[in-house]
Amino acid sequence: MSAATAIRPESAEGAPTRRRGPRRGRNVRPGRVVALVALTAAALLWTYPFLWLVSASLKHPSEIFGSGFDLVPDEFVWENYTRAWVEAGFASYFVNTVLITAGTVLVVVIRSALAGYVLGRFDFAGKKILIGVFLVTFFLPEGYTIIPVTQLTDQLGLLNTHAGVILGLGAGGQIAATLLYAGYFRGLPKELEESARLDGAGQFRIFFQVMLPLAWPITATVVILTFLFAWNTYLLPLVFTLSEPDLRTLAIGMTVFVGEYGQDWPGMAAAAVISLVPVIGVFVVLQRKFVDSVAGAVKQ
């Protein structure tokens, strides 16, 4: 429900002009009703899996399959959560995911802001080549690079470390972030640097004290997009942590859980809830920014 209230402010912005429009008092036509019913049915279809998941995570095993569509457990079995958190190791999977996500976000923000700044504001030898390489590799699928990346990480001696996963996720790719920064910095007025330079600031101080703080909307967007990517990623951590239980992220932990405790449906559901709650929570709190971040891609 907080989702509904949180989104109000935005729809309110566009609403006044609409409400004052001439169509307000129009009669409701049957087409409208059909559309609204279809919309409600679809909304149910989109909500039900999540409700079912939460309900399953609080049920007895026998109750999950066999009580039809009933979502309310006979008895709330909170013990499912302790089983997933403690016994199945989701506490440590959770910490791993937080560490890896935070590290990846940090790497991507620093790397993209620095590169985006010079790409957006300066001309230098090799700029066109660099942009050409970015474009060619823009859509490179992860499945394409996973073997050499694994090999490289192995040779760097990072295969069973958090740093290896973080670099694997954040050091390459993520071109959209660089381009977002470049586009934003390009639009800032030239005088900013000139006046800072007159005050005696060097390039690095100009960047860190003037430009980077100005670019906070882009930083917010990049943080959100990278957070989503790193939290939800699967293939790379799967390959890197197959042989290293201490490094597993939540998504890999789920896979292992299915293999090891195959029949523990409520525990599995509880583990899934634990894994999804942070990302959904952040979304609900910051949803306007989320939606804008995503929509930006197509507006360009």
Partner: peptide
């Protein structure tokens, strides 16, 4: 419409691998 939009967007932010496992149950 804002509420509906949020609902339909919700699965987008979730982890694909976990959605896959959850749907094996569903």
């Amino acid at each position: 419409s804002g509420f509906f939009r949020t609902l339909f967007f919700l699965p987008v932010v979730t982890t694909g691998a976990i959605i896959g496992i959850v749907f094996t149950l569903l």
